[in-house]
Amino acid sequence: MTEYKLVVVGAGGVGKSALTIQLIQNHFVDEYDPTIEDSYRKQVVIDGETCLLDILDTAGQEEYSAMRDQYMRTGEGFLCVFAINNTKSFEDIHHYREQIKRVKDSEDVPMVLVGNKCDLPSRTVDTKQAQDLARSYGIPFIETSAKTRQGVDDAFYTLVREIRKHKEKMSKDGKKKKKKSKTKCVIM
């Protein structure tokens, strides 16, 4: 069974824990209790493949930012979460993405942009803004509501699919490099 290491990042209060708990335990946590770091595991079937999701729910508070490099190193894919009623959390996505790329030393890291709290009427981040940002990053965008469960499975499952595509691409690139290195030079 394939294991996928997913990391949920975003500013404090955007609903990272609520999304994760909704996926794992099928219930909505409405009281806000700032996370330092929590880890969850769940076995699911995605596109006919049974897999184990190892999900790291991270601290959004700035005082825990020193811990970010460590979990970013171990993560295979990242859910970059903002709240649709919090423009600052949307603007912060850029910083999370840049930090992930720096730590992973790669421009090509599996990510999904997630606009959470889409059940709320007080939207300050337009869907088109988020779609445009995701398009500019070359990553999928999904709106979710941890409260109603809308888009929750889709967000995590899409990230797994992005990781699969990335692994497939990397193995193809690896095979191309191996083929090239088999060419021999004969000096007579």
Rank of each mutant, 00 (worst) to 15 (best):
E3F: 05
E3W: 05
E3L: 10
Y4H: 10
Y4L: 12
K5E: 13
V7R: 14
V8I: 05
V9N: 04
V9G: 10
V9T: 15
G10K: 04
G10S: 06
A11V: 11
G12Q: 14
G12I: 04
G13E: 14
G15L: 02
K16I: 00
K16G: 03
K16E: 03
A18V: 12
L19V: 12
L19M: 08
L19H: 06
T20L: 03
T20K: 00
T20H: 00
T20D: 02
I21Y: 14
I21P: 00
Q22W: 04
Q22E: 07
Q22T: 14
Q22D: 15
L23G: 06
L23F: 12
L23S: 09
Q25S: 15
Q25E: 03
Q25V: 15
N26H: 14
H27C: 15
V29K: 00
V29C: 04
V29T: 02
D30P: 04
D30Q: 08
Y32I: 00
D33W: 02
D33G: 00
P34Q: 01
T35M: 01
T35F: 00
E37M: 15
E37P: 05
D38N: 01
D38I: 00
D38Q: 00
S39W: 02
S39I: 02
S39A: 07
S39M: 03
Y40L: 00
R41G: 04
K42I: 09
V44L: 15
V45P: 13
V45I: 05
I46E: 14
D47N: 09
G48C: 10
G48A: 10
E49P: 13
E49H: 15
T50K: 07
C51W: 10
L52F: 11
L53T: 07
D54A: 13
D54K: 14
I55T: 10
I55D: 00
D57F: 00
T58K: 01
A59V: 00
A59H: 00
A59C: 01
G60W: 00
G60K: 00
Q61N: 15
E62W: 02
E63D: 04
E63N: 02
Y64A: 01
S65D: 03
S65K: 10
S65A: 13
M67N: 09
R68W: 02
R68V: 01
D69L: 06
D69R: 10
Q70M: 13
Q70I: 04
Y71T: 11
R73A: 10
T74H: 11
T74G: 10
T74Q: 13
E76R: 06
E76S: 07
G77R: 03
F78A: 02
L79R: 07
L79Q: 15
V81M: 07
A83I: 04
A83G: 11
A83K: 08
N85S: 09
N86I: 03
F90L: 07
E91V: 04
E91G: 07
D92G: 04
Y96M: 13
Q99G: 04
I100L: 09
I100F: 06
I100H: 12
K101F: 06
R102V: 06
R102L: 13
R102A: 12
V103I: 10
K104W: 14
D105C: 08
S106F: 06
S106G: 12
S106N: 08
S106T: 13
E107T: 11
E107C: 10
D108P: 04
D108R: 11
P110Y: 02
P110S: 03
M111F: 10
V114S: 02
G115C: 13
N116P: 04
K117S: 14
K117G: 14
C118G: 08
D119E: 11
D119C: 08
D119W: 04
L120I: 03
L120V: 12
P121W: 11
P121V: 10
S122G: 11
R123Y: 09
T124F: 06
T124R: 10
T124N: 08
V125M: 10
V125Y: 09
D126I: 05
T127I: 06
K128G: 07
K128M: 08
Q129G: 14
A130W: 15
Q131F: 12
D132T: 05
L133F: 05
L133Y: 14
L133M: 08
L133E: 09
L133A: 12
A134P: 04
R135I: 15
S136H: 11
S136I: 06
S136N: 09
Y137K: 11
I139N: 05
P140H: 03
I142V: 12
I142S: 14
T144Y: 01
S145W: 05
A146Y: 01
Q150A: 07
G151I: 08
V152Y: 10
V152H: 09
D153V: 07
D153L: 07
D154E: 09
D154Y: 05
A155I: 09
A155W: 07
F156G: 01
F156L: 04
T158C: 10
T158L: 06
T158Q: 07
L159N: 04
V160C: 14
V160W: 07
E162G: 09
E162V: 04
E162K: 08
E162Q: 07
I163M: 11
K165T: 14
H166M: 11
H166R: 06
K167V: 06
K167F: 07
K167A: 06
K167S: 07
M170F: 10
K175Y: 11
K175D: 03
K177R: 06
K178D: 06
K180G: 05
K180M: 06
S181D: 07
S181E: 05
C185A: 13
V186M: 14
I187L: 06
